[in-house]
Design a protein around this nucleic acid. Sequence first.
DNA 1: GTCTATACCTGGATAGAC
DNA 2: GTCTATCCAGGTATAGAC
Lengths: 222, 222
Amino acid sequence: MNEPAGKTTGDTRSRILDAAEVLFMDHGFDGTSMRMITSRAAVNLAAVNYHFGSKELLIQEVFRRRLTDLNKARLAALDVLEAEAGEVPIKPSRIVDAFFGTALRMAADVEGGGHTFMCLLGRTYTEPNEFVRQFLAEEYAECVERFLAALYRALPEVERKEILWRFHFMMGAMSYAIAGTDALQLVTGKFDDEDPSQLAPRLMSFLLGGLRSPLAEAGPPK
Amino acid sequence: MNEPAGKTTGDTRSRILDAAEVLFMDHGFDGTSMRMITSRAAVNLAAVNYHFGSKELLIQEVFRRRLTDLNKARLAALDVLEAEAGEVPIKPSRIVDAFFGTALRMAADVEGGGHTFMCLLGRTYTEPNEFVRQFLAEEYAECVERFLAALYRALPEVERKEILWRFHFMMGAMSYAIAGTDALQLVTGKFDDEDPSQLAPRLMSFLLGGLRSPLAEAGPPK
DNA sequence: GTCTATACCTGGATAGAC
DNA sequence: GTCTATCCAGGTATAGAC
């Protein structure tokens, strides 16, 4: 998106970011050392501090370079929907696709690193690191607000609090589905032979089913 | 469950386990040092190695002591359902409640530490640590197999692969809902004033909606 | 059995040569 | 701008005193 006109720095910087992205996904932030990063990137140990200032700022930049684009793409998709719709309400399934489908399409990009990043992102939603959490919250704030507002308009009969909960649940199902797809086969090892492109339609169907489910204010089933 | 007849050791051991559970949830495994654990437990630095052998074995024990009971409770609930049902198929909602509802009830136990543990567990589903992952897979294997089998019987018209996917999605929604409830307020800070007991019915409704959603083999909505 | 003291290693970060 | 050498804080684990 923004090319800061520097071209000599670009290469080393990018190599560090790419290496860090993969390693953070595999070993977590605390589990990844500067030495692991610099040796994978084939750069000197001091390069990270030179280019980014610290490990924390490197983490931040790893997220920023992709998350900015992802949320821009989400908002652009929502802009299109809202322009098309005019006055009539947008179908919730379209809104869900603009948010979650956009992320899933990024996750399907294995070669460009989108897949790695989405795995990392999914993993990071439950990451307790204060620094990372605050940064993510800031990066997401605008995007989430606009999508929630769109869902409120699309589902005026549903209580807003309820929509908020369900958005939360959808985030969880997606994060886990992506991060779990190749990070953990807890349930069984049975996903190995699956085509990863099957994930998106299946997950979208699940999310919409959950979103539309009756509220069930009654007592528990037992 | 198993009282190894030692009573002098019990106290120190438990204090270490309780301290580790909280700290692992707050800072992750790599982010929690032995010094943090032992100082919180008010025991000596050497006590962890004395009682557990290593940090990794401590992690394992933190999970084992609660997970064994959780999965026993789940299987017991399933046993009851199967005994009651006899030949007729069990309603999927009952099966889902036996698995996820049991976990949610454990998560509602704030004082006994169940809540802390479920947060930790939810966080750990996306934890890439090889050691932990393999341990969890072993602990879960039997329980998950039996619940999947029950769902296959309850939903004979749905492809098994599809059920497997949806089970996976349900796990994700639950983990994130629990771990996110007080570990990260990414979406907004708006859950703070919520009663945590509201989570269970809302989540169960969402899960069942997703489980029952039509398969949507057609193209994407766009 | 439990704790004190410590060994030994790896972490992030930096100063200064090139 | 990049690399080498190094600092020192903090990591796990242990040997030996109590």
